[in-house]
Amino acid sequence: MRPSQVISDIVQTFRMDPNGDRVVPPTGFTARLTLFSSAAMAFLAVFAMALSLATGRLADRWSDELARTSTLRISVPEGQMQAQTTAALRILETTEGIAEARALTSEDQKALLAPWFGPDLAVETLPIPQLIEIVETDDGYDAENLRLRLAAEVPGAVLDDHTRWRKPLAQAAARLRGLAFVSMVLIALTTGAMITLAANAALSANTQVIRVLRLVGAQDNFIARAFIRRFTLRGLFGAAIGTVAGILAVALLPKADTAGGFLTGLGLQGWHWLWPFVIPPLAAIVAFVATRLAAYRTLKERS
């Protein structure tokens, strides 16, 4: 297939041609099938897109929050706890890249354990380690260097820079994004398959139209374009309806800040609202390619 012919087909598809448009009968179940499948797939694509974007946002936020904080755990006999904590705080205060270091009070630690042991836990009676919360500057600190210093001066201290939390989160986010992308590819392929089926059905139902057009001297590109134009515009129109419906459905999801849960953060935010508008043109491209392949293949088979 020559590139010039493909370009010509694209131009002709979007050119108003009342004579070319009229040669294929306007109605039929294929019209409804194409519109419905395009609208349904575009609706699903909006959700897949929203899921992908929200997952990325959520993972970025978690990762960002964990990346800016670290925890120092001091596990020593009770008698050495105060001295080791003081020593550790002194080291942290003089470490470049640390904005703030604060030893958690017994109330803070009690609050942390409350989800597991309840609110009435007597923290003082348990041999729990002393935790120091570290807040980093934007540039961060040298974790390896800090570990060496702590090992020398506070042997009971263990630095947790949250790497082991961030890594699985980043992996999970990447996988969710990948799944959302795969979903969108599958949606595009399914749309293509549905439109191919509809186009094939339309071509079969219009055998007489093709015969007559050939009888009066129509070349393959004229016949093919009549079908391509129709299915491309139907795909575009159906996807536009589905996209608008999808955007409305996403807009009606509960706000993340009101419920605060994971699921409530699946909407679109800021300029991400613009992303769904690429779905109708993409659906039109899928419809164009699917119908074009089906039309030229059918015309070749019936020569």
Binding site: N19, R22, V23, L213, V216, G217, A218, Q219, F222
Partner: peptide, 12 residues
Amino acid sequence: TENVALPLSTTG
């Protein structure tokens, strides 16, 4: 009329 004009339509 459209049927009679069909050869014209197909040739642009």
